[in-house]
Amino acid sequence: MKAARRYALRLERRKYLVRAWRKSRSLLPVADRTDAIRPKDILCFCTLRNERVRLKYFLSYYRDRGVSHFFFVDNDSDDGTREYLAQQPDCSVWTTDASYKRARFGMDWINRLLRLYGHGHWCLTVDPDEFLVYPFSDTRPIPALTDWLGASSIKSFGTMLLDMYPKGAITAQPYAEGQNPFEIACWFDSGNYTIERNWTYGNLWIQGGPRARAFFKDLPARAPALNKIPLVKWHRSYAYASSTHMLLPRGLNLVYDEWGGEKTSGVLLHAKFLDIFTEKAAEELERRQHYAASAEYRAYHDGLNENPDFWTRWSEKYINWRQLEILGLMSKGNWA
């Protein structure tokens, strides 16, 4: 890559860091328990708004897998999310009523927290409806993975966002607090994804799945990106460039092998399509705080009004990570 191009990316990264600092001034601390963080802890970072009902399962899922401390940025919730999180012994919470969109969909806030608290730690940046599955996740905790990645001199761990959906209308089965969402949304598309390379940032751009199939037939290029790099051994000079789809410096985006082999990778199970979603889609459409003028939410809203059912006879029912591995949706790589 040309020196000029490299320098431009360097400037861009600096810009994100400055921007993160600027935007973070609107963050108000609600609960700061960062003193309790020990050197090798796995940290989890999350922006959310009105996700109270999801939190119980979210926290227990990641606690069980070895996350030691959670960082939440609450974007002006009014359903008790903030109060609930503030009571948790392993959560640090900030709140803001600033614009989600103008904070680059929350990434500025998260970049700031990552820079302040993430340095030297393995950091997991996820949404409250994203659940990390990695090779051996049923028998080995996340620290086993990160220890191994560290020993292999790997700094970032790639995943694909896998949209999960129920059979039948998504409003048919109500979600109860604390419930495993994949008891309801247990189906997924196994093989309709398209991949392109983003040569500027070095990452892959993956699209497809049920959302593309159901909502973006006419504009496949607008279908949401599914490539995510949520787990990174953070350094204070790093910055997420666009959601967790890509980072700078660009070497961190090279989570795939170019010479025929498979690198170790995982999946983020996406529990978006539950009954609570329709309400959310309507609200988000009104707030217009999402990507590309909320085109995605508009598409959902239109689609959902027609009582969508993502399920087809070719849908796969989720069993475990080994199934995802066999289907080619993730890989053990050389972790055995």
């Binding site: 790639g158 991949i195 795939y256 010479w259 082999g261 990778s265």
Partner: peptide, 20 residues
């Protein structure tokens, strides 16, 4: 595991295998 890492599965294109 070594084979997986170095040669991968033929015909598979995914987020950790995208051969040139």
């Amino acid at each position: 595991a070594l084979e997986r890492r170095t040669r991968g599965r033929s015909g598979l294109y995914m987020h950790s295998r995208f051969p040139n």
